[in-house]
Amino acid sequence: MIKITFPDGSVREYAEGTTAYGIAESISPRLAADSLAASVNGATVDMMRPIETDAVVRFYKWDDAEGRHAFWHTSSHLLAEALEALYPGIKFG
C-alpha cells in the first residue's frame, strides 16, 4: 500500500500502481470526470499514469492554469500526430 497525501493534509492508502484517475474516482466520480491532469510530488502527469510510491497528489481541472496548460499541450500533440498521418514527412516549425 502507498500513502497519498492531498492538499488539505488528509492521507489515504491505495494499492501500489493506482492511477491518479483511480484515486480521483474513489473520492468522487465527478472529480475524476472533471480532472484533466494531476500533480504527483510536484510533477504534472496524465491521469492514467500509475503511482508506485507514497506521494502528494493534486488534481487539475479546467479552472486551474495547470489544467488548461495540460489540455492544450496534449491537444497539440494529437494534432501533430494527425498531421503526420495525413502528410507523411511534414515538418513542424
Rank of each mutant, 00 (worst) to 15 (best):
G17N: 03
G17W: 08
G17D: 00
A20C: 09
Y21F: 13
G22E: 05
G22S: 02
G22N: 01
I23C: 02
A24I: 12
A24D: 05
A24N: 09
A24G: 02
A24K: 06
E25R: 15
E25I: 07
I27T: 07
I27G: 01
S28D: 13
P29Q: 14
R30D: 11
R30Q: 12
R30N: 11
R30W: 12
R30A: 12
L31A: 13
L31I: 15
A32L: 13
A32R: 14
A32D: 08
A33D: 12
A33L: 15
D34L: 15
D34M: 10
D34N: 11
S35H: 11
S35V: 14
S35P: 10
L36N: 11
L36G: 09
L36P: 11
L36E: 15
A37E: 12
A37H: 12
A37F: 12
A37L: 14
S39Q: 08
S39Y: 11
S39L: 12
S39A: 15
V40G: 10
N41F: 14
N41T: 12
N41A: 13
A43D: 09
A43W: 09
T44S: 10
T44H: 10
T44E: 09
V45A: 10
V45F: 09
V45D: 10
D46F: 12
D46G: 07
D46V: 09
D46N: 12
M47Y: 03
M47I: 13
M48G: 07
M48I: 14
M48W: 08
M48V: 09
M48P: 01
R49G: 00
R49F: 00
R49M: 02
P50V: 06
I51E: 04
I51C: 08
I51V: 13
E52F: 09
T53E: 14
D54I: 04
D54F: 03
D54A: 05
D54C: 01
V56E: 06
V56C: 04
V57W: 07
V57G: 05
R58A: 00
R58H: 00
R58Q: 00
R58T: 01
F59R: 02
F59H: 01
Y60F: 15
Y60C: 02
W62I: 04
D63E: 06
D64M: 08
D64E: 11
A65G: 03
A65R: 05
E66L: 03
G67P: 06
G67S: 06
G67V: 03
H69V: 06
H69Q: 08
H69K: 07
H69G: 03
H69N: 07
A70F: 12
A70Y: 09
A70Q: 03
F71G: 01
F71I: 01
W72Y: 06
H73T: 07
H73Y: 04
H73K: 05
T74I: 01
T74E: 03
T74C: 03
T74V: 02
S75F: 08
S75I: 00
S75W: 07
S75G: 11
S76P: 00
S76H: 04
S76F: 10
S76E: 09
S76D: 04
H77E: 09
H77L: 09
H77V: 05
H77D: 07
L78P: 00
L78W: 01
L78R: 00
L79N: 01
A80N: 09
A80E: 10
E81Q: 02
E81I: 02
E81T: 01
